[in-house]
Amino acid sequence: MNIHNYEKLWLVLAMVMIIGFISTVVYGATAVGIEMVNDEGGTIDSTALEEDDRFAEPRVERVGDNEYEAYVVARQFIFEPDPIEIPANSTLTFYVTSPDVIHGFEVVGTNANAMVIPGEVTELTVELNEPGEYGILCNEYCGGGHHTMEGKLIVQPEDEFEQGGNDE
């Protein structure tokens, strides 16, 4: 085997770079605490969402002091509930599922971005600090009206949220 020294040098550098990439990702996963969407959302009978406690009535629910859960149904070609309203400085867990085909769930311009697969529940937790409005769109082709599938996430100032009131 006749490998030039420069080539060996490059081989070493390439390995260093690869290990550097993996280390960065591991740093993000551990030190920063970014978790991937995983199998913890569980499965669901997608033909019978109306019989499911969580998804029969898509909604936002308060589950703790600053903790909320949003049960979202992504279907051809809408998101329910729409808009999703939440007070600032809270932690929100999305549970998203689909009764028909595969959809995407993207809070536009942010890292909240996941697939929605019939039969599975996508679980995604984010922190919402500043008040503001975000668009939500479907980023996986889901049929002829795919491009019209959008929703909204509204983060309201804390005081206004109480007055505006939700379903409670």
């Binding site: 390439a14 959302g41 499965t43 971005n113 697939m115 929605v116 697969i117």
Partner: peptide, 29 residues
């Protein structure tokens, strides 16, 4: 391609990532 799919544990995604990163090697060479 399924990093943000539900229903697949994170560990499997880590394995896929490591393999993918090493797959850069032949292209870099």
């Amino acid at each position: 391609h399924q990093y943000v799919d539900p229903g697949i544990a994170e560990g499997f995604k880590v394995i896929a990532m490591t393999n993918t990163m090493f797959l850069l090697l032949p292209s870099l060479l």
